[in-house]
Amino acid sequence: MRILIIEDEKALADEIEQFLSNAHYQCDKAYNGAIASELLATNPYDFVLLDIGLPDYYGLDLIKEAKSYNADAYFIVITAKGELNDKLKGFEYGADDYLAKPFSLLELHSRIQAITRRKFDHSKAQIQFGKFTIDINKRLFSHENTNIDLTKKEFDILSYLVLNKGRILDRMQLTEHVWGGFYEEDYDSNYIDVHIKNIRKKINQFDNQNWIKTVRGLGYKFDL
């Protein structure tokens, strides 16, 4: 997968690149609108991360430009202005998703994966562990053929852990993913812990394996 990172803050662009490269994406960077415009015209990208607060360009115009020569890249708009207007405008211009600064890189990755699942690779939406199946698109969780009832938040937490299996997810990353985090102030709260306890209880009705490991002082990790 090829991704173009359009971000005038070099330091941030570099961090995004590092994270996504580790996740095996091929990344290009543009620190201004002019270079971005050129790169978009000459390269086929799967994803474009677009900071709309560029010094030389009205960021959203780049989406228009790209769409005008039929590029089928998916656009994830990033903004630091935090105005609701930006979000609505972004979607109006054809953006596929929206992130407000500061966002977690893991969350950014999860948004990319979500679009991928939705648009190209439906098979990735079904993940199995043990005799359990989790269908991300249909939001179903089952053991063999028995449906397991999860609340919305429980499903979000479990699927986030499963999609990032083997990686430690701290409470903050989980909270940000589940609550979006605008009004959220209780990163350290035990809400996540209670949800995890409930998920474990539901899983343990079917098998005794400890799928979700507690990482002391940090959060949780899903072990396959």
Partner: peptide, 11 residues
């Protein structure tokens, strides 16, 4: 303000 925070967070 939010851009530097974003950089620190990513780092």
């Amino acid at each position: 303000i939010l851009t530097p925070i974003s950089i620190i967070k990513s780092k």
